[in-house]
């Protein structure tokens, strides 16, 4: 579900839509899928807030991450 994969799928859809022989029904389905991806990605980009964390565990132990206070 990475942005890269989403962009690749959008590219595939655009290519398929370009084909003259594509049935109307299929083109509608693909278009809906494309708009769905765009809508989801937009939502993610707009809503996801980054986490800034700092590693606090010693090197020989499993990682423990704590929120890093130095964030602006």
């Amino acid at each position: 579900m990475s942005f890269e994969t989403d962009m690749e799928r959008m590219e595939e859809i655009t290519k398929r839509l370009q084909e003259d022989s594509i049935p109307l029904e299929d083109s509608i389905k693909l278009f809906e899928e494309g708009v769905g991806i765009a809508r989801r990605v937009e939502k993610e980009l707009a809503e996801i807030e980054r986490k800034v964390e700092i590693l606090v565990s010693p090197v020989d132990e499993e990682p423990v991450l704590e929120p890093f206070g130095g964030d602006t």
Partner: peptide, 21 residues
């Protein structure tokens, strides 16, 4: 830039579906 790239693809798709319609 990510949004612009996504936007550009939606625009292209829309154009093609419009042609199909």
């Amino acid at each position: 830039e990510m949004v612009a790239a996504m936007k550009e693809r939606v625009g292209r798709m829309h154009h093609m579906v419009r042609n199909r319609i």
